[in-house]
């Protein structure tokens, strides 16, 4: 038997491209957020309300990731912000290369904040660095308060948690304190927001926090 020594990360190719993306973002003084959640948690609606809350303060750009259709890009485009749709055609997550290709269709110099809305999936996107400054995970109250325990890697890798659809709390079998407790168990340092993108509740607090993360000289 002979052995060829490799000693490298399996996803090294993705990490190399992600590092190049990150360097590009830094060159442009651009803050990049990777927005992740399960399907239907309200990422796109949260994004629409976030654009409304921030567009007078800064230039926001969006990359939409979906398995099929450009429905989300159409929704976001109505707000007059630059948006690029990535269709993965079955792929369960975005990879750094897909984002690098999408960047060719955006004027990065004109942006302060870029939000990458990942494919709806609480598992796979956790492993793929896109070059973002931070992951923000959205969890809706209708999903139940046990989700941070069931999908811990995503919550562990996120900087912030947005608990969305809080207007539905009286009607669902989930408790906000249990969501907070379970999320902190997987990630003690998690910053937690409570929002309803539908009613607008909690949106100003979330938007102000996000605005403060945008590199000041460019905002």
């Amino acid at each position: 038997m002979s052995v060829i020594t490799i000693e490298r990360k399996v996803l090294e190719k993705n990490d190399v491209i992600a590092a190049a993306n990150r360097a590009r973002f830094a060159n442009h003084g651009l803050t990049v957020v990777n927005l992740v959640s399960s399907p239907g948690a309200g990422k796109t609606t949260l994004l629409e309300r976030t654009i409304e809350g921030l567009r007078d303060r800064m230039n926001v750009g969006v990359i939409e990731g979906d398995v099929h259709t450009d429905l989300d890009a159409q929704r976001v485009a109505r707000y007059g912000v630059p948006v690029v749709q990535i269709v993965t055609n079955g792929g369960c997550h975005l990879e750094a290369k897909l984002v690098a290709d999408a960047l060719e269709r955006l004027d990065l110099a004109a942006l302060n904040l870029l939000v990458i809305e990942n494919v709806g999936n609480l598992v796979c996107p956790a492993n793929y660095d896109l070059g973002e400054a931070m992951k923000v995970v959205v969890l809706s109250t209708t999903e139940g308060d046990d989700k941070p325990l069931k999908y811990p890697t995503m919550f562990r890798n996120a900087s912030a948690l947005v608990v969305n659809k809080i207007d539905l709390l009286p009607y669902v079998n989930a408790e906000i304190q249990a969501i907070r407790r379970n999320a902190r168990l997987t990630n003690p340092g998690l910053t937690i927001f409570e929002t309803s993108a539908t009613t607008g509740a909690g949106m100003p607090v979330w938007c102000d926090w996000l605005a403060a993360k945008v590199i000041p000289a460019h905002a």
């Binding site: 052995v3 060829i4 003690p188």
Partner: peptide, 25 residues
């Protein structure tokens, strides 16, 4: 990834390793 100490329940724990996916040879 349940970041609680099995002894005292504290979540103030530092981890090292265990997150990588590597090809050795």
């Amino acid at each position: 990834p349940m970041f609680a100490c099995p002894g005292c329940g504290s979540s103030a724990i530092a981890t090292s390793g265990g997150t990588d996916l590597r090809i050795v040879d």
